[in-house]
C-alpha cells in the first residue's frame, strides 16, 4: 500500500511521520501530483494559519488536486479546515470539499481560546472510529472549528458543540491531532489505513 503525506507549508508534520512509523506504515512525503494521485491513501496534515497555507496550496496548484482525489483522503487540524468552504481565520476561501464554514470560538465566555488539551468526542458515524470507546479523549489545539453540520461524524463540545470529525465520500477529516492523541489517535490512523 502506498500512503502519501502531502507536503506543503503546513508547519511541523514530523509527529505525523513518527506516528506512521510507530504503526509500521511506510509513507512518502511529497507535493508531486502524480505521486499523490497514484497513492492508495492520502494524509493532508496541517499546523498553522489558514490564509497562508491556502495561498500556498493555490500557488502550487494543490488546491485543484486535493478536491479531485478519488482515494481516501484524511485531513487533520488545519488540513480539515482547508477542506471546508471558508474560514473566519483571516477570511480565507478554502477548498470547499465540505460545504461548511469554519468559525472562531467566541471569546466572550469564561473559557479560554485556543481550545487546548484533551477533550472527549461522541456521536460517532465513521469507519475511522470503529473500536474507539464512546467519549474517547483526543488532543486539540485550535481557535477555529466547523460547527455541527450534515458531514459531522464526531462531535466535541467547547463553548459550543462543533465538528470533531467530518466525512463526505472519500474525504475524511479530524480537527484534533491523531498523531499525539495516545492510543485513541493511533487507532483512528490505523482505521484510516485499513479503509
Amino acid at each position: 500500500m502506498k500512503t502519501v503525506i502531502i507536503k506543503y507549508n503546513a508547519g511541523n508534520v514530523q509527529s505525523v511521520m513518527y506516528a506512521l512509523d510507530r504503526i509500521g506504515a511506510g509513507y512518502l512525503y511529497t507535493d508531486d501530483e502524480a505521486e499523490i494521485r497514484s497513492a492508495d491513501k492520502v494524509i493532508f496534515p496541517g499546523v498553522g494559519e489558514a490564509s497562508t497555507t491556502m495561498n500556498y496550496l493555490r500557488k502550487v496548484g494543490l488546491d485543484k488536486v486535493i478536491p479531485t482525489l478519488k482515494q481516501p483522503v484524511f485531513g487533520t487540524c488545519v488540513g480539515m479546515q482547508l477542506m471546508c468552504r471558508f474560514s473566519e481565520e483571516n477570511s480565507t476561501e478554502c477548498m470547499g470539499i465540505f460545504d461548511v464554514d469554519v468559525k472562531r470560538f467566541p471569546s466572550d465566555t469564561n473559557l479560554k481560546v485556543p481550545h487546548m488539551g484533551w477533550n472527549n468526542i461522541s456521536n460517532y458515524k465513521s469507519a475511522l472510529t470503529y473500536g474507539v470507546p464512546d467519549n474517547a479523549f483526543v488532543y486539540f489545539v485550535h481557535s477555529f472549528a466547523p460547527p455541527v453540520c450534515d458531514y459531522t461524524v464526531a462531535i466535541c463540545e467547547y463553548v459550543m458543540p462543533f465538528s470533531a470529525m467530518l466525512q463526505k465520500g472519500n474525504f475524511y477529516a479530524a480537527q484534533f491531532h491523531c498523531e499525539i492523541s495516545g492510543d485513541v489517535g493511533q487507532k483512528i490512523i490505523e482505521n484510516f489505513l485499513k479503509i
Partner: peptide, 8 residues
C-alpha cells in the same frame, strides 16, 4: 522521545 511517545 517523539519517535516513542504518542502524547504531546
Amino acid at each position: 522521545v517523539a519517535q516513542t511517545v504518542n502524547i504531546p
